[in-house]
């Protein structure tokens, strides 16, 4: 796994992509910091980081678009498959290299609050907690985009898929208020449809009818039982579900100065789920 990690890191700096990613990340951080903390005089670095998350919509796809597609294009995936290494170590090695790239950017950004203390900023704790949440958000999105880019061998398609994917997650937050008024029946129907779509996705990845049927049954049956027992529980359920599952919404919690453990656990679970799904895709390709 360390060998894969080292190769990926070397690849980022052999190609222009690693430098472009870091340059754009630091440029965006610098611009937002200059606007909010220097020009507008905000004493809270979290304000800059709040807007920096917008940059991730482009930066994360830029970082991940090559990770899997290039292996297939150059036929180096055959080398990876023939190595005496479990597939999960290969996926994890690649993932950790991308997270390390983001980490390098975050380490440099961590200097910004220190500089700002010279101008009178004193909320270092909030600043670093938010930066940590920003890193976690990025790490979760990297896993999500790594999975999307494993579905294709075309870098451009991977990039588009990832941008659209992150935008959907991001906009889900923006439109979350629409679901506040969603009644019990609408919430129930939408959640059932989403569960079935998830089961369909599992079938697409595994081609295992029994496993995906199990996911569908275990997902749908309890919901039907709950709905039949007390349908009022589904009042506003959609809004709550989207809020709970939202990556960006959770990120803002840190910005308000709360060190939220559930966010850490949620982001880590989100990343683990998509790392696992990337492994599934790679394993399935070998079985195709």
């Amino acid at each position: 796994m360390i060998a894969i990690f080292k190769r990926e890191m070397r690849s980022y700096f052999h190609n222009v992509i690693g430098f472009v990613f870091l340059a754009l990340l630091l440029l965006a951080a610098g611009v937002f910091c200059a606007i909010f903390n220097v020009i507008l005089g905000s004493a809270d670095f979290a304000d800059s980081l709040y807007y920096l998350q917008l940059a991730l919509i482009i930066l994360i796809p830029l970082l991940t678009m090559r990770s899997m597609t290039e292996e297939r294009r150059a036929h180096t995936d055959q080398l990876l498959y023939s190595l005496p290494l479990p597939l999960w170590k290969i996926v994890l090695g690649k993932y950790l290299a991308m997270v390390a790239m983001l980490g390098i950017g975050c380490v440099v950004i961590a200097l910004f609050p220190l500089i700002l203390t010279l101008f009178g900023m004193d909320a270092l704790g909030t600043a670093y907690a938010t930066l940590f949440a920003f890193f976690l958000l990025g790490a979760a999105l990297i896993a999500f985009c790594m999975f999307l880019s494993s579905l294709t061998e075309n870098q451009l398609i991977a990039m588009i898929l990832c941008v659209v994917g992150i935008l959907v997650i991001f906009l889900l937050d923006t439109f979350v208020t629409i679901f506040i008024s969603a009644g019990a029946v609408l919430s129930f129907i939408v959640l059932i449809v989403l569960t079935l779509l998830a089961a369909l996705g599992v079938y697409g990845l595994t081609k295992n009818l029994y496993f995906s049927s199990l996911v569908a049954i275990l997902g749908v049956l309890p919901q039907i039982v709950i709905f039949l027992i007390d349908s009022s529980l589904y009042d506003g359920m959609l809004y709550r579900a989207v809020s709970v599952l939202s990556l960006f919404y959770r990120y803002t919690v840190f910005g308000s100065g709360v060190f939220d453990l559930t966010t850490i656990i949620y982001d880590a679970s989100f990343a683990a789920l998509f790392i696992f799904m990337t492994w599934l895709v790679m394993d399935k390709r070998r079985r195709a």
């Binding site: 360390i2 036929h75 180096t76 995936d77 055959q78």
Partner: peptide, 24 residues
Amino acid sequence: PEQPPLYEDMTPEEYLTFVAEAKG
């Protein structure tokens, strides 16, 4: 394999070192 699985952005020495490390 039929298409040599080579990382074109590496030198042969770097590439072979990577493969040796990955092979344990």
